[in-house]
Amino acid sequence: MEDLLSRAVDYALTLGAKYAEARWQVDKGRFAVVRNGAVLRVGEWSTGGISVRVVAGGLGFAIAKGASWEDVKAAVDSAYKAASASAKYRRRPIQFGEEKMARLKYEVPVKKPLEDLPQFLLGLDRVAQERGVAVRSFSASIWVTEKVVVNSDGALVESSMPRASLFAALIARGPNASLQRNVDVGGLGEAEALEEAPKVVAEEAAKVVSLS
């Protein structure tokens, strides 16, 4: 991938760009939704591809249709055209400073895999139900973002970042009104990012019931 991105950056410079940057990014994950003890949805998703950004007086951005050189070259052409065209309408050309560039590969490891996301959410649902929450909705995602960034100022960065997030809506019905409390828990990794979720859901469920 690094070779393809470097080739894109070099090609942009041959067109006359003052700066070029190419990024490959893939986000890939899975999700689950549970409402009132029932699994509503479970699925996997991914997005990914290559984008280029070019400075040529103005700034142009384009994405490649695929990962072939022809696709990436077309994206560079498109970004360069946009950058050149927009330059005509600028009072002064875009110029970047001389920031120090990183050459780095880093990865956040998953310490505790979480295999069964629907079961995890069903467990949280029971925690909230036991505390008297009438309406309970839980959605969670676990995904990894992988990137390679190359630019004409010398940057070469590879990263891999796993994340997990939980959103819960807890609605309690009191004698006179209902009350909703939203809960977010998450962080880097998988199960380790959601470790506090049972405790937080228990606390917040008790709170929303007592306040309603």
């Binding site: 940057e21 920031e99 120090k100 560039m101 880093y106 630019n151 940057a155 990263s159 962080g187």
Partner: peptide, 15 residues
């Protein structure tokens, strides 16, 4: 900070 918003280098290659 190694939390949900963590990164070591931004999209422009700046540490």
């Amino acid at each position: 900070i190694e939390a949900y918003g963590f990164y070591l280098v931004d999209e422009e290659g700046v540490p």
